[in-house]
Design a protein around this nucleic acid. Sequence first.
DNA 1: AGCCAGGACGGAT
DNA 2: ATCCGTCCTGGC
Length: 334
Amino acid sequence: MERLMEHSKEQSTELRKYGELSLPAVSPFNFKYTVYKPSHFPTRLEEFDEASEIFYRTYRLNKEKLIGLEMTDLQKSDGKDGLKIEIFSNKPLTEGEVKKIEAHVTYSYGLKEDINEFYLSVASDESIREAINNFWGMRNSCFETLFEILNISSMLQNTTVKRSEQMMQAMLSNFGKRVIYNGKELFVFYTPEDIFNSSEERLRELKVGYRAKFLMEIARYFSQNPDFEEKLKIMSLEDAKKNLMEIKGVGPYSARIALFQYLRRPHEINFDSWKTKIFSKFFFGNEDEAAKKVEKEAKKRWGNYGGYADLYVIEDLFVKNPELQYWRKKCRII
DNA sequence: AGCCAGGACGGAT
DNA sequence: ATCCGTCCTGGC
């Protein structure tokens, strides 16, 4: 406990502005709901300011360089679909590093993806027409790296969202880097080495439970296979899933989060316990249908775009029913 | 106080 | 292929 307090008082690193980017997106593009997902549990990695519609997000460029981004809608400044980005950093950036940030943002937010393919493929389904209208142009988004999203999935396993939030906060304040830019104080994600050079016992002190072992395994794996991320991106779906599940602590649930969120495979639906309830109600009018039946219905309706349909329905529900956030905090799993 | 839910694993079937 | 006990924590 004392150690935890000690760390929380560690000084923030101040980031300074080192550049700007204007990144166009394929139309239609919804800035707000691409960068900000109402259904995601909040972390100190990012912050969306509703009033100004400014999105703040940190990024771990490498072991030394800590990045803070400030994103706004390119429509506001240039009248075009896309993102305007101000880049803050703790150290000067090379041209190549700026390119790397650009590539990361472009990939993470699917700026070059054509969302119309999804709209066309589910055009005959009335049940999600309204969600599509409300979130017109929204992309799937995963700003996390593969290592980071597998850490988050591990913390979502076998517990309530409230506990996942606590675990994430404990991990970030102990292993992450605290930064401040434009008056925003956020954390930058820890690296595999930060965890690998620590110990399972130390992780257990942070109340991540039996996951301590898995988090160590994941950190070890990424520390020893730094090119895993790039290799995975070019694999077939089956190979990617198989390779992901070879990491101890990564099972079908975490693998599917990685496949849909990180690898952006649009058909990968991912129903955990609370989503199964929601979609049971959505399809059949009651919460209690069997998980297999619910998943089968989703596949039948949405085929290759199950993951995207899931995303639109869920975000629409969370905006219409903010109390869902509270219900889910009590409910088991994400 | 004791039991239960929630993924993943490993071993048994 | 499917089933079961175990891991850990907080909520009931």
